[in-house]
Simulated assay, not measured.
Amino acid sequence: MDTNALDVLPEEPEDSEQSQTPEERSASFSLPPPIPATQSMATKYSPLPWKGYFDNEEDINIPESNSTFHVYSAGTEGPVIFCLHGGGYSGLSFALAAGKLKQKVRVVAMDLRGHGNSQTDDETDISIERLCEDVLAVIKTLYGHDPPAIVLVGHSMGGSIAVHLAAKKVISSCAGLVVVDVVEGTAMASLIHMQQILSNRPRHFPSVEKAIEWSVKVGSLRNIESARASVPSTLKFDDERECYVWRTPLEKSESYWKHWYEGLSEMFLSCPVPKLLLLAGTDRLDRSLTIGQMQGKFQMIVIRHTGHAIQEDVPDEFASVVLNFISRNQIGPHGIQIPGLRR
């Protein structure tokens, strides 16, 4: 501390307390404590920049197409944790988790077609086939024909993409699969309610701060910091109405919903890599996965004190689980590490 700063403070007489009358001393002790300064709504729900969590962002131009995918990355060592967000979210859904993961692994999170800051030749085609093609194109553009070990991490719709890619063995260096809170049975059963759920969302917001506030108070997110980092990228400004609207019109993608999740459980079980299913509740496990889990075909972890977006609500716990999965399966920068062998 700079001791010169003490010089500006007036000195109190040593006998100031003795000079007070009993009534004055009693009154001073009965005063209520000062009211702490409250955080304004604008500050509490203000957007947070990606730079606090990721190290870089870049636009990946796909050769021979008009598509550009926005990608965030962090970390310099270890295998690549390639993160795929859910429908209506963005790559920044993994921002807080990336801030924890990057100390030991590399993290890459892309904005999928029709989401975030990606711009593609057809924003409306978010079929599972097209989404898988997009991810493959980004990986090829980033790493060429010799990619490092990749652990696919997918949340909700992104989990479906990750499962399809792992099951089809189209990523030669795929070393692991982490699926976050998506199970075929529950997903298929909930599709009949999706339009109603989407119609209950506000269609526009007067400001980004109001959208962040709604996402935490009414929407699916429970972590204010994560919402401040991720929600802005799920919005776009409507010049005509002079307000913010959702970047992705999910209600118009209904024709693709069934194909995202149909046959997902058996496909997940068939993936020839170490697998982790991270759930927010055991009631989401269907029959095929229950049998597979009892047979030890995959690891399952249930985190009960969270909502659907586990990686956003409890990023520290999410990062810890993913790192433990990588350590448990000995996944290094070049793949599964076999004791006694060196590459």
Rank of each mutant, 00 (worst) to 15 (best):
A74N: 06
G75Q: 03
P63L: 03
L9T: 13
G158Q: 02
T43E: 11
I192M: 06
F29Q: 11
A27F: 12
G292S: 02
S156Q: 01
N223H: 00
I310K: 01
S220M: 05
Y72P: 01
N324E: 15
S199L: 10
G263V: 13
S160V: 02
P339Y: 06
V105T: 14
Q293C: 09
T3C: 06
E209S: 07
G219E: 01
V273W: 09
I303A: 01
D15A: 12
T141D: 02
A189D: 14
W260V: 10
V163F: 05
G99P: 02
Q119Y: 12
F268H: 09
Q39F: 03
M194C: 06
E251D: 15
K217F: 05
H305V: 04
P148K: 08
D238C: 10
L9W: 11
S233D: 00
S173K: 12
G263I: 15
R130H: 02
T124E: 09
P10S: 05
E14C: 12
Q293D: 06
S156M: 06
V80Q: 12
R222M: 05
E17N: 10
A149S: 15
F54K: 03
Q196N: 08
L289R: 05
M188C: 11
V245A: 03
A98N: 04
F82C: 13
V216M: 07
I303F: 01
P147G: 00
Y53S: 15
R25H: 04
P36M: 09
L6F: 10
H115F: 08
S320T: 15
K100A: 01
Q39L: 14
E11F: 04
P249L: 13
L96F: 08
R130G: 00
I301W: 02
A5M: 08
A137H: 01
A37H: 09
E317A: 12
K252P: 09
S19I: 02
